[in-house]
Write a protein that binds this DNA or RNA. Structure first.
Lengths: 139, 139
DNA sequence: AACTTAATGCATCATTGTTGCATTATCATT
DNA sequence: AATGATAATGCAACAATGATGCATTAAGTT
């Protein structure tokens, strides 16, 4: 996942591959877990606040990133996996927040989570799990 | 669920039963589905904005209401059911948002939703479902 | 190199979150 | 019912984020 990868990705989604966008994506990629907005802003000081706002919007709209979590007025953003694209943006995977190290990770479902609500049409299911992650449990 | 009920409830949670608080709780109760913050504010104009903010905080803290949903920077609040109390505030029930009528309701799980993430300690599970509710499907 | 169009920066305003402090209302006690 | 302790409220003030308009700049195409 180097700069060239993101450059191509941006082009494939009809977005211009500007320096800011590539820096942002490389940053988010290196962060490994879903990145809180405040951390993104701190890291991207060269970028105007409004530009960052609009950049996140357009990357989200084109299915390159998604808002993984929102809690206590803090939003966490993550780069989309292969399962996301512009047309079909589904996130049935689980967002796990570790209350110990404060990280948010996108977990892949090991088992199929079945949710049924008789009479209702279900379009999207998001599951937020809070607990203590493997690393923190060990320590 | 009349005013007296909420007055007693507030007292039982060591909160003063002020007019504002009772009005708010009666309002939220009558709303039936989880109430968006903007609607609460519109309805409670007699109350100072800061007081409303602090009131929601304290009611939340004492397990009388909970934030059912947060999306697009809009928070939805709902009165807690019998399963909530100050000490053990668990919400394994499902929050369902109808994209047609925009209402958010707290659904009771008909089946047990089992989430397992090997190695991790799971403390809280929140499930957000988006779709079309029974009433809207019929129309 | 020139041109087209998207992206950016700056200004600006709205909304919500948050805290401090003085005033007022609630509730328990007398 | 009056009094007193304490919680609740209102107002002022500031911070953070969301959101839009417009002029300027940069990216990608020809």
């Amino acid at each position: 996942m180097d700069a060239q990868y993101f450059k191509d990705l941006l082009h494939s989604r009809k977005l211009k591959a500007t320096g800011h966008r590539i820096n942002l994506l490389v940053l988010m990629d290196q962060y490994k877990s879903a990145m809180p907005y405040s951390s993104i802003q701190e890291a991207m000081t060269s970028m105007d606040r409004v530009t960052l706002y609009r950049t996140l919007e357009s990357l989200k709209e084109k299915g390159i990133i998604h808002k993984a979590f929102q809690e206590n007025n803090e939003s966490y953003y993550a780069i989309c996996g292969a399962e996301c694209d512009t047309h079909d943006h589904h996130h049935d995977h689980i967002h796990f927040k570790c209350t110990s190290c404060e990280t948010v990770t996108c977990q892949t479902t090991t088992q199929k989570v079945q949710v049924t609500l008789p009479g209702n049409e279900i379009h999207k299911v998001s599951i937020h799990v809070e607990g203590v992650c493997q690393t923190c449990v060990a320590n």
